[in-house]
Write a protein that binds this DNA or RNA. Structure first.
Length: 444
RNA sequence: GCAGCUGUAGCUCAGUUGGUUAGAGCACUAGUUUGUGGAACUAGGGGUCGGUGGUUCGAGCCCACCCAGCUGUACCA
């Protein structure tokens, strides 16, 4: 008989998607609990919006409106294009526009949610990831911007980072706008290329950036990036101003004054911080980690920022004639988790069950009796859920990281005293059933 | 998108100038031990050699095209 070719489904995950293990999830939970506490303390409302939105509602800034699956995951139902959200800001703007009359002004909300981007993943960057956003809507008061920076710091420090571990960089879109006007850099393409070039300053250095500002730059692989065609005079002024670390715009000066009132010092003014080009209108922030992060192969990677944000006074206005200034900040949680797991070991309790071994199914009542006692005492426990001999059960307990097993076979049942085996030390002792919870707690 | 590199077992990889039935370590399963895990030993399962076509008596190895992944770069709300 001929062997039939069987269809085998792939075990691989789609590019950019990952399975997440318990250790990572518990670290993430820890961060999230810190976030929630801080947000409550700062008086923010908790909000959730759906994963999908109409592409039109959040697609104002998509690269190609005719092909909404570039960059985002989209599909068309009977009538409309729908997209998985690619951030939490665009849905917020939609929410504000929809509920404008009801919400308090100003409106402060925070949100935790998965977002998706249909683009090439990189080290520590995936196509599905968890974001945290905090936003102030309906106020031009720069205290909002300042407080976002303060609040992010408090979250990071609660998570165990010190002031040396991170820096909040601030800058203002107003600075580049005024400077570009002065230098007669054309709005549109030339201005965009110049901004993107300046954004690469910390990674490439001035000499490389300078190439992009003139004719263009060829990278190691031979790829060519078109330049901004600035003249020498423009570049000279640009270099001087961008390296000047003293703020000149009034918004930054005011924010710094507010920082002082908060006694917040862990920030840095850096005019080369650019962020996205599309919607920021005023102050912008970026949160950077200052310690080394390694990839799975132990190689140090350029980690970049773990979050950022800024003022976007016109975004809500796109939905209609709503004058609704806003400012917000977001953190890429998975990246923060990844970095934090390397930074230090958290005392994250991951309680593995005590395993009650089964010698004879006839005695199941005894096993479940012990199980109920342990669970009443809030001890994670289980009667061995599989089938097999004692050796197999021990191997199982060892593999799941169980702290102890309970052996209750013929010999023990005769005297009503189970054997408790500590799996870390290998020690065994016979214990009265009533005392089991207490003895086990000593091991945990 | 562009460029360079790489695709052999679940994972990490070896595979001679093209030559029988494609190997190792780890992992997995079973046993040595039917009441004892982490160690050792023994045995076993697991592969369309990324795909298609070509050259050849013969291809994991050579050629062409395709696909996928990695790295850099571009875009990034």
């Amino acid at each position: 008989m001929e062997k039939e070719k069987k269809f085998k489904p792939s075990k691989d995950l789609p590019l950019g998607f990952v399975d997440r293990q318990e250790k990572e999830l518990l670290t993430r939970d820890f961060i999230i609990s810190n976030i929630k506490e801080v947000m409550i303390k700062y008086g923010f409302q908790y909000l959730e919006t759906p994963s999908f939105e109409y592409t039109d509602s959040i697609g104002k800034f998509l690269p190609d409106k005719e092909r909404p699956d570039q960059g985002v995951f989209s599909f068309k139902d009977e009538k409309n294009w729908l997209s998985l959200r690619y951030d939490l800001t665009a849905p917020l703007a939609r929410y504000i526009a929809k509920n404008y009359l009801e919400i308090p002004k100003p409106f402060k909300r925070y949100q935790l949610g998965t977002v998706w981007r249909n683009e090439k993943p990189g080290p520590g960057r995936f196509r599905e990831f968890l974001q945290f956003d905090a936003d102030y809507v309906g106020t031009q008061n720069l205290q909002a911007d300042a407080e976002l920076c303060v609040l992010i710091s408090e979250i990071l420090e609660r998570c165990g980072l010190t002031k040396d571990d991170y820096t909040v960089k601030i800058s203002s879109r107003r600075f580049t706008k005024e400077l570009f006007d002065e230098l007669k850099i054309q709005p549109g393409e030339q201005s965009a290329v110049t901004l993107r070039a300046l954004d690469k300053l910390d990674r490439l250095g001035w000499e490389e950036v300078r190439k992009i500002l003139t004719k263009g730059r060829e990278d190691k692989s031979g790829d060519f990036t078109k330049g901004a065609d600035l003249n020498e005079e423009q570049i000279k002024v640009l270099e001087r101003k961008i390296k000047e670390k003293k703020p000149s715009t009034s918004d930054i000066l005011e924010i710094m004054k507010i920082f002082e009132a908060y006694n917040f010092t862990n920030y840095q003014y850096d005019p080369s911080v650019i962020r996205g080009l599309e919607y920021y209108t005023g102050p912008i922030f970026e949160v950077n980690l200052n310690f080394e992060v390694k990839n799975s192969k132990g190689k140090t990677i350029q980690f970049g920022s773990i979050g950022g944000g800024g003022r976007y006074d016109n975004l809500v206005n796109n939905f209609g004639n709503l004058d609704c200034p806003a400012t917000g900040i977001s953190i890429g949680l998975d990246r923060l988790v990844y970095a934090l797991m390397q930074k230090k070991e958290y005392n994250i309790k991951s309680n593995k069950p005590v395993v009650i071994c089964v010698f004879n199914k006839e005695n199941i009542k005894d096993y479940i009796g012990i199980l109920k006692k342990l669970r009443e005492a809030n001890i994670s426990s289980e009667v061995y859920p599989g089938e097999g001999n004692l050796k197999k059960q021990m191997q199982y307990a060892n593999k799941i990281g169980s702290p102890a097993v309970i052996l209750y076979g013929e010999d023990e049942i005769k005297y009503g005293k189970p054997t408790l085996r500590n799996l870390k030390s290998g020690e065994e002792s016979k214990i009265e059933i009533e005392n089991l919870p207490n003895e086990i707690k000593k091991i945990l």
